[in-house]
Simulated scan of single mutants.
Amino acid sequence: MITIWAPDGVGDVGEGDDLAAHLLAVTHDGADLADGDVVCVTSKVVSKAEGRAVAVDRAEAVARETRRLVARRGSLSIVVNRLGLTMAAAGVDASNVAPGRVLLLPDDPDRTARGLRLEIGQRAGVDVAVVVSDTAGRAWREGQTDIAIGAAGLRVLDDHVGRVDPYGNVLAVTAPAVADELAGAAELAAGKLGRRPFVVVRGRGDLVLARGDDGPGAAALLRPEAADLFGLGARDAVVAALRGSVQDRAAYGAPAEATDLRDLLAALTGAEVSHDGERLVVSGRDPRARWVAEVAAYAHGWTTRVVDDLTLRVVPSPPPSAGG
């Protein structure tokens, strides 16, 4: 059985506050906590305690926190922020802060989770896991849910690969993101307006690691850019392909297979496309066909080089870190 509760009585959290003290104050000096519990804390109070409320324009704050634009529609932007999280407005929050200020995400949520876990263990004598949660939207779905942006002492991913289901099927890709599931469950107990930033989840001690083992943290849930099939928005992918900059290349993932690209280029351009070792050769004089080949090759992780008026050579692009 899983039990979830959100203690009342947490007052306003300010810069420099001791979050462990706030938690222990509403859990009777930790007497309400037990080994194997998971303590979830909202990123908002973590940010406040860490002094991440800043007096800057929200747009400026979003720009500072952005590593790469994923999609933009009017004033709404989805970006990969400095933590590697893909979020609306880089996770910058303008609610529940003084006018003229915005709240940035914690500097290092995994580090915060590790520190809070250590303090709870030392002061209350219990071995708990800690999750730092934040609210995020989901592709293809309306609404938002809480996810784990920081974690300590927790198996954040429950990998089922190799296990066998009741019908004898060997599982190949199933891997519940249990840290996110715990964050979402915690939000149900806390609510958005209840002023209950701490939630205790009991009943999943099997996911809690031994004292001293903090695990990989929530950063382990970040999908590598080269493995992300949706690294750009639909319109934004078209614009990025036309722009063809080195900075956008990683969003298209690993280079496509040569045979797949060969068939695509032939279909798009009507030109003769041959496969010569590790390169493709596009032959033809049509300027438009050559331009289409260049754009399509870029979007598939390949680089074009003009050989002469008749020939366009296409080779796999080097990773951006290797100089593009």
Rank of each mutant, 00 (worst) to 15 (best):
K48Y: 00
L24V: 11
A6T: 06
D165M: 03
A55N: 03
V70Y: 12
P7A: 05
Y252M: 00
S283E: 13
H28R: 15
L229C: 06
D93C: 15
P287T: 04
D8K: 13
S75Y: 13
R223E: 15
R290N: 09
V126W: 06
G284F: 02
G184F: 00
M87S: 14
G121M: 11
A219W: 01
A61M: 07
L76D: 11
A227V: 04
Q247K: 00
V97I: 12
A190F: 01
R202N: 03
A129Q: 11
G323E: 12
Y252V: 07
R123P: 14
N81E: 09
E278S: 07
P166R: 08
G14D: 10
D260Q: 15
L19W: 09
A251L: 05
A227Y: 03
N169M: 14
V70Q: 06
H275F: 14
I2T: 14
A241H: 00
V161Y: 00
V45N: 03
G125K: 10
G162F: 01
E187N: 12
T303E: 10
E187H: 15
D228A: 08
R305H: 04
V178K: 10
I147P: 08
C40R: 06
D17K: 05
S43I: 02
D248E: 04
L103V: 05
L265S: 02
T66K: 08
P197H: 08
L157H: 05
D93Y: 10
C40D: 02
E142M: 07
G215H: 00
L312W: 01
V199R: 06
D35A: 12
D236G: 00
G91E: 04
A186F: 08
R67H: 09
V292G: 04
D18E: 07
G301Y: 08
L83G: 02
A21E: 13
V39C: 10
A113D: 05
A210N: 13
L182T: 01
G84R: 09
D32H: 08
A218H: 07
R138G: 01
D309C: 09
P176K: 07
A251S: 12
I2G: 06
R211E: 14
D93R: 11
A250F: 00
H28S: 15
V10H: 14
L207Q: 13
G233L: 03
R141T: 07
V130E: 09
D308Y: 14
V238F: 12
Q247Y: 04
D146C: 05
A129T: 05
D260R: 11
A179T: 00
R117E: 05
V281E: 15
L105I: 06
V201N: 05
D110M: 13
D286A: 13
G205I: 07
V79H: 10
R123H: 15
W291F: 11
E187S: 15
A6I: 02
V80N: 07
G284T: 10
W5P: 10
W291Y: 12
D108Q: 02
R138T: 12
I147F: 01
E119Q: 15
I147L: 08
G301T: 02
P109V: 02
T27F: 05
L261K: 04
V315H: 10
L265W: 02
